[in-house]
């Protein structure tokens, strides 16, 4: 099961019987073959508990289940699409960035505060994306969207990467995040600059950053 990028904005997925996909609702561009699209009441897996968990977590992005036999093209809003292959790791991504992903991946939500402490909560407020983020783990592919192109920055031990919270898209690996303030941040107070707060990612992994400070 794979996603194939047709161009920077469009991804094509093969759907085979017995393997389902999840995608953001309304993101189907075209399909051939016999494919059905069903709104996913539970927002993916996890049944009622998962649904409640999502309601509480505020991460209830409308998803649909894609099943059948054929080939489907996905795209959304003209945003750039990037395919991330997971082989046993965990991807942390805001739910509204998800275009489509393998149904075999384990979904979950993570309380960002548990990692970053109080600062983690502030992060949620800064990005306006809530305190919870979606996790996907296992083996499979994820198609993620961003405004403008993606850059992929490696995070190495002892070499943290600082990211504008508005430009942050996703990260993977063994990574801790916390909110930091830039040196000289006083200069910015009351000026509404995005550089007052930065998301500091440290550990070992990869962070995906978009070429824009705009949310989707």
């Amino acid at each position: 099961m794979a996603f194939r990028l047709l161009n920077s904005r469009l991804v094509q997925a093969q759907v085979v019987p017995g393997q389902r996909l999840f995608s953001q609702r309304g993101a189907m561009i075209a399909y051939t073959g016999d494919v059905s699209f069903t709104p996913s009441i539970t927002g993916g897996q996890g049944g009622v508990m998962g649904m409640i968990g999502r309601r509480v977590a505020g991460e209830a992005t409308p998803l649909m289940t894609v099943e059948g036999n054929g080939s489907v093209m996905f795209g959304h809003g003209g945003h750039h699409v990037h395919v991330i292959e997971l082989s046993g790791e965990t991807l942390y991504v805001e739910a509204d960035r998800l275009l489509a992903f393998d149904g075999s991946l384990q979904q979950g939500t993570m309380f960002m505060g548990s990692q970053g402490g109080v600062m983690g909560m502030v992060r949620g407020q800064v990005t306006g994306q809530g305190l919870f983020t979606t996790t996907l783990s296992g083996h499979g592919a994820v198609a993620v969207m961003a405004h403008g192109g993606f850059i992929e920055l490696p995070i190495h031990p002892g070499r943290p990467v600082h990211v504008d919270p508005q430009a942050y898209v996703a990260h993977r690996g063994d990574v801790r995040n916390k909110l930091s303030t830039a040196l000289g941040w006083r200069e910015f107070v009351g000026r509404g600059s995005g550089e007052a707060f930065q998301l500091e990612l440290s550990g070992n992994g990869t962070v995906y950053v978009q070429a824009s400070e705009e949310k989707l």
Binding site: I151, L153, R159, P160, V161, H162, V163, D164, A167, A182, L183, G184, W185, E187, F188, S193, G194, E195, V207, V209, Q210, A211, S212, E213
Partner: peptide, 10 residues
């Protein structure tokens, strides 16, 4: 600024 590595002041 969208991201940086190293030490930066703004």
């Amino acid at each position: 600024m969208v991201a940086y590595e190293g030490d930066m002041t703004f």
